[in-house]
């Protein structure tokens, strides 16, 4: 067994152990911590599988951002949560049986894959020059399967509306409050030192997405994290959610994407098709505006429902 294989084996065992612990542990807070650790380990596995794009997304959104949202939910639920009661024997057997079925089905699918597995990868790479991009993953995301990415961008808005709808009537249209309850020197220092680097990293991830791993969602997630850090330290306040510029920023990404897509019907040959020769600049414009919108939407998701009287 080579050293690399031993490391991979250890990683796989560790992920399974953390996943099992996350399910088994009764405390909500501990389960969320387990979930975050699980996501980071999963990102390492994606790196080992030579899929840095997926690893970046998993670390930034799957583990980091979702973890933050779950932490917020756990903190909100803490006051009203009752200790979980153990389910009955019958329910356990049914749940266990269904899990075994799903696992067996997945295992059978993987084991019975034809060799070599069917893949569109060569075609994706062959047609990449037409888009002017260097990263085939970005090519799939914003050119071949642009409709998926468009829907992903749009779905953030209903999610945000869902969070906002938790606001009380009095606070509707006001500002969300995300602030660490006590003034803390260490947190303030971190929120002063880290954001300049984080903002550069976010812009780099967005810009670099055309040719290297990265993209609008990863860059936006990093920018949102920096914003959340500043809010948390109390260095700045979140804007009231009724602000016009805020709402314009939120829909700008989806709107530009949709506009380019609709224009494609006339100037190219189909919805979401790019005219020949203009693919790269159009994709770049979409990515930049989308990064901004994603950053604002994710930041507001973390900040939570409006909690301040708008007056």
């Amino acid at each position: 067994m080579t050293l690399a294989l031993a490391v991979d084996f250890g990683l796989a065992l560790l992920v399974l152990a953390v996943a099992g612990w996350t399910i088994a542990v009764r405390d909500t807070f501990a389960a969320v911590i387990g979930f975050v650790a699980y996501g980071l380990l999963l990102a390492l596995i994606w790196v080992r599988l030579a899929a840095p794009d997926v690893a970046l997304t998993e670390a930034a959104i799957g583990s980091g951002l979702t973890g933050l949202l779950l932490l917020g939910a756990a903190a909100r639920l803490r006051a009203i949560e009752t200790p979980a009661t153990a389910p009955g024997t019958a329910l356990r057997w049914v749940a266990g049986g269904l899990c075994v079925l799903v696992a067996a089905g997945l295992a059978a699918l993987v084991l019975w894959l034809p060799d070599p597995a069917p893949t569109l990868a060569p075609m994706a790479v062959a047609h990449l020059p037409a888009t002017g991009l260097g990263n085939p993953v970005t090519g799939v995301l914003v050119a071949y399967r642009a409709i998926d990415t468009l829907l992903e961008a749009v779905v953030l808005l209903p999610a945000l509306i869902g969070v906002w709808s938790l606001a009380s009537d009095r606070c509707w249209g006001g500002a969300p409050i995300l602030r660490y309850p006590r003034q803390d020197g260490a947190l303030t220092l971190l929120a002063q030192v880290l954001p300049p680097f984080g903002i550069i990293l976010g812009i780099y991830l967005c810009w670099n997405g055309a040719d290297e791993p990265g993209g609008a969602f990863q860059g936006g997630a990093v920018l949102a994290a920096m914003w959340a850090l500043i809010l948390l330290a109390g260095l700045a306040d979140a804007p009231p959610v009724s602000r016009r510029w805020l709402r314009v920023l939120l829909v700008a990404g989806s709107a530009v994407f949709l506009a380019v897509g609709l224009a494609g019907i006339w100037i190219a040959e189909a919805f979401l098709a790019y005219p020949a020769g203009y693919a790269k600049p159009l994709i770049l414009i979409i990515e930049v505006v989308l990064t901004l919108s994603v950053a604002v939407a994710l930041g507001l998701l973390i900040a939570g429902p409006p909690a301040e009287d708008p007056t």
């Binding site: 006590r182 803390d184 020197g185 260490a186 947190l187 220092l189 971190l190 030192v193 880290l194 680097f197």
Partner: peptide, 15 residues
């Protein structure tokens, strides 16, 4: 960056 993050988190946890 690890030093910066680790130190901050330790401070917060200790408090």
């Amino acid at each position: 960056f690890v030093l910066l993050a680790g130190t901050t988190v330790s401070q917060l946890m200790a408090r």
